[in-house]
């Protein structure tokens, strides 16, 4: 750890605030991305199942 002298609080809090915001932004971005991907995947899967079920019914 470097010797930050009398400005240690200022320097550490500037880095702390910046890193906290960046980590939150990255986490939020990844969470939203995973949520949207899963929502689209499950919708398309359900649609595909519905499609298979209705073509099976039509064949019977």
């Amino acid at each position: 750890m470097p010797d930050l002298g009398k400005y240690a609080v200022e320097v550490l809090s500037a880095y702390g605030v910046s890193l906290a915001f960046l980590v939150l932004l990255v986490a939020w971005t990844l969470y939203q991305g995973a949520k949207a991907k899963e929502a689209l995947r499950s919708y398309e899967e359900r649609r595909a199942q519905d499609g298979r079920a209705s073509s099976k019914e039509a064949a019977e």
Binding site: T29, G33, A36, A39
Partner: peptide
């Protein structure tokens, strides 16, 4: 970092828009 996050977020927006259109 901006480019990385932008690519991820734009992909999310495209997926959300597609889901909305399908619904």
């Amino acid at each position: 970092l901006f480019v990385t996050l932008l690519l991820i977020r734009t992909r999310t927006e495209i997926r959300s828009r597609r889901l909305k259109a399908l619904r």
